[in-house]
Design a protein around this nucleic acid. Sequence first.
DNA 1: AAAATTTACAACCGCGGGATA
DNA 2: GTATCCCGCGGTTGTAAATTT
Length: 257
Amino acid sequence: MGRKPCCGKEGVNRGAWSLKEDELLSNYIQLHGEGKWRNLPHKAAFFLLLHLLVFMAKNNQGLNRCGKSCRLRWMNYLRPGIKRGNISPDEQDLIIRLHRLLGNRWSLIAGRLPGRTDNEIKNYWNTFLSKKMQVDVSKTIESEDKKSVRKYKSDKMIVPKATRCTKMLVSLDEGDHSEKNQCPPSSTPSDTNDGPPLESPKENHLLNMPYFSDIGIEGIFENTNMLETDDVAPMSEMEFHNLTYSLEFDDDWTNFL
DNA sequence: AAAATTTACAACCGCGGGATA
DNA sequence: GTATCCCGCGGTTGTAAATTT
C-alpha cells in the first residue's frame, strides 16, 4: 500500500523543455491559473485540441510531462516576474545574511528576494557562495583566536540545516562592500553575464519592496547583535525560535527585530 | 585544435505536511 | 481513522557551456 507515483516514467518527456512545451504550459496557466499540477498535462492536452487544433494538427503531441515537472518549470522559469541572472551585490549580501539566519531554507530566503526562486538561490549558493564562504571562513579562522572559535561550538549553539556557513563577517555600513566585511567584490561571476548593468545599491528594487521600504536592508538587522562587525556569535535558542517563527508566520517580520 | 576538466544551472527525485475523500 | 492526493521543499543529478591543458 502506498501512494501512486506522480506519473509513470515511461512515455513521459524528460529533460530540457522545448519552446513549444513552454508555450503550451504558459498558455494553459494564463487561461486556467496555477494549481492541480497533477492533472495539468492531461488538461493541457485537451486545451491543446480545443484551442490550437489548427496549429498543432501536424505535430500534436500534447504536453507529455509529469505534473511536478510542469509546476517546476512554471515556478522557476516561466512565471511572470522571474528575474534571471545578474544577482546584485545587495541581493548577494542579503542571501548570505539570510542563510546565516535560516540555513538551507531556500524558499524562505527566496521569499525575501522578489523575482528570485528558491531553486535559483540554492544553485547560486551551491555553485558560488558556499565556496566563497568556505574561503572566508578559513581566512578568518587562520587569523582569529582559536579559543573564540571553540567558544561558538558550545552545546547552546543552534545549528539550522546550514552546514557550510558557520561564520561570516559583515558590516552595518550601508554600501560598504570593502574587503573588510567580506561582501562581494565589484566583479562577480554574475557581473560578467550579458545584460543591463547592475543597479546601484540605492536604486535596487530590494530597498523599495514593502518589507524594506522604510528601513533598508541594513535596517532589518538594526538593534540586533547578530551582525556585530568582526565577531558574529551564534544565536541563542530563544533568538532562533523567535526569528524563525516571525519569518514563517508574520509577514511583517521586521517588527520582531 | 582537440581533449579534459570545471562551472553553472535546469531539472529530477524522494519525502513530508496538510487537505480531502 | 485511513488512504490518497496535492503541493512544496531541499538534496542531488545531468549536461551544456566555458575554461584549461
